[in-house]
Design a protein around this nucleic acid. Structure first.
Lengths: 358, 358
DNA sequence: TCACCATGCAGAAACGTACCTTTTAAGAAG
DNA sequence: CTTCTTAAAAGGTACGTTTCTGCATGGTGA
């Protein structure tokens, strides 16, 4: 009845465009989507009419029809008790940014979703695939998604035989070993570790790599751990580490804020960096380039990871699986600054030197 | 034909649940959505069957039918030439995090979208509403959305008579004036400003507030500006500012990294903070609590802003407009630390809390 | 006994699009 | 003139829900 003439109060639909252009619905659809075989005259005419009516195709209808929504989930698992720690550290922010850019470049958009969510939120959005950051072993959400045929690519090697479509990760063991060697080369005799008591893959692999390195070189492990989600706990743990009787002469901090925390702690104990204490910290933040002294950092290259994860995911969605390897290891980057460079790597470890004049 | 028996290869639909449960589609829908009038026996039976079949309602179909997708856009305008500077600073990360949490708590999810995007990405996702961070005057995307009846709430007072549904912002002028007064109280005679040459509202308002303050107290303005999207330019500009013949004895940096940049520049010129130079910086980062010395920061309270923006938006979507004011001003928070406290101002405010002896 | 009503459920019409199939028109080849 | 080929466009169905309307049934008050 009121079909061909006036829309009630909603947006203009494809029918209205067809009526206004004097063609059929099929023609409009084909003209707008560049399909079918239509003369350019018809095509441009339809386009013009659609533009004039302010026609915008219904994403829901298109998704229903085609089965593709153009949406990718971005899932962040929670650390500790925090309800939702998205972008808790610079790493996540950078990674999410790169993933968003990469997705957009291929016509997809990212939907931010928490790993531990009520079922309904996940059901209410049609996802073509999902990126999972650091999934827990046997994550029920991931299992469910894969069971329903939705591709899942994880940032971080999945544990517990999680059936993901692919993953991207750093070689954390190699990174830690290389970093510890670097500190030892700079003259460190006893290297300490500031780590988290969380069970995520990154923390676990890094810590075990540290322990195995210690065993290899015959050093007693010296480490303090703390709940990574508590910002204050890091400073306290840093203090604890430097207060130990077996105080280390070099420290590696696994988390982003550890660098400034350790620097502050060193100051409180009157330890000079790098003369009395070598410092390295895993961080993506640029502040460590301008601290006093600048601190050596290990970058996990979140941008490359975010990009790679999305590429693999979209390839899987579009059936181009053979393009790229399903598993990718991104090299880390040790940015060496003053805090890990002892002036004389070979001479006495603690030469009494006054501060260089201005 | 092959309708009631076997789904071809896709997911189980509501029809399959109805058939398996021996009821009608209507009954399944009502049972699962808690509508209609059904005895609890039927309801639980249907739920059980649906669970057994692994039934997940199609979000696309539901959206098409109801007109509500449960998705909110989160739009970030670009700074300078950068293609997409999401979470360039800690502010965005925190704000996005809070917005995501708030949305999730009310059953919505956020879709990250760039302000300057190809049309098709915006068309491909059904949005119930959109959050826009710091929209440009007369932003075409915003105009288009509003014209299509989609609620838009902005973070930042919209300029150019942009027809948004609502907005949330700080009182930037008041914040800057209060901060400058604080520096003057601490003994500053000539306060400099490190600012950006971008045209966004925050930069503009803050800069003009600085200029009017200078005029009021009769001080010549001393400022340097730089392209805020270039990380290196900030350090250079900080250096420039302290190299001027009319060197300020206090500086306010508008952007997050300015604090460390200014601190590094001060060190290069042999200026002690706060003795020779008072420092304040607008930042959400926690690193400034542990720098040497700790730096006073102005927090814009991104979490409160993110939460408020989402609440207003969802209220508008659900027609609860009368609940909250459509425009909200969030107070800023000046976190006073050593860098802006001159000794003579009062006695020692911060007794050095060294760790109690080992 | 007869309305009458509440309860429990089923039928079927949308929602707006994409695409498969069919029709029409118009030349070209026989 | 017929038949074949091809371009151009129309018809109609399906995607999977929600929801309006309506049909039974059985108990209740008059």
């Amino acid at each position: 009845m009121s079909r061909s003439t006036g829309r009630r109060l909603g947006r203009a639909g494809i029918r209205d465009v067809a009526a206004a252009a004097g063609v059929s619905i099929t023609t409009v659809s084909d003209a707008l989507n560049g399909k079918g075989r239509l003369p350019d005259a018809t095509r441009s005419h339809v386009r013009e009419v659609a533009e004039r009516l302010g026609y915008r195709p219904s994403a829901a209808a298109r998704t229903l029809r085609t089965g593709k929504s153009g949406l990718l989930g971005l899932t962040v698992t929670t650390y500790g008790d925090e309800p939702f720690t998205f972008t808790e550290f610079a790493y996540f922010a950078e990674m999410a940014r790169a993933a968003t850019s990469a997705a957009l470049a291929r016509g997809y958009a990212l939907v931010i979703l928490p790993a531990t969510s009520r079922h309904d939120v996940w059901s209410n959005v049609a996802l073509d695939g999902t990126v999972v950051i650091d999934p827990a072993d046997g994550d029920p959400v991931v299992t469910e998604l894969v069971r329903h045929g939705i591709p899942v690519v994880s940032d971080g090697r999945p544990g517990g035989a999680l059936p993901v479509t692919g993953w991207v990760d750093n070689d954390h063991e190699a990174a830690v070993l290389g970093l510890l060697d670097h500190l030892a080369d700079a003259g460190a005799r006893r290297i300490g570790l500031l780590t988290g008591n969380t069970t995520d893959t990154y923390t676990r692999l890094s810590t075990t790599a540290y322990l195995s390195w210690c065993e290899r070189v015959g050093q007693d492990p010296v480490y303090e751990s703390y709940p990574a989600h508590d910002p204050c706990a890091g400073a306290v743990a840093a203090d604890r580490l430097l207060a130990r009787p077996d105080r280390p002469d070099a420290v590696y901090g696994l988390f982003d804020p550890n660098g400034t925390d350790l620097l502050a702690a060193a100051r409180r104990y009157g330890l000079r960096v790098p003369e009395d204490l070598l410092l390295v910290c895993c961080s993506e933040s640029t502040v460590y380039a301008t601290t006093e002294p600048p601190i050596t950092t290990l970058s996990l290259k979140p941008r490359r990871i975010g990009t790679a994860v999305v590429q693999i995911l979209i390839d899987a969605i579009e059936g181009l699986d053979d393009d790229r390897p399903i598993e990718q290891v991104i090299p880390t980057d040790l940015i060496v600054r003053t805090s890990s460079q002892r002036r004389s790597a070979r001479t006495a470890i603690n030469p009494p030197r006054g501060p260089a004049g201005a």
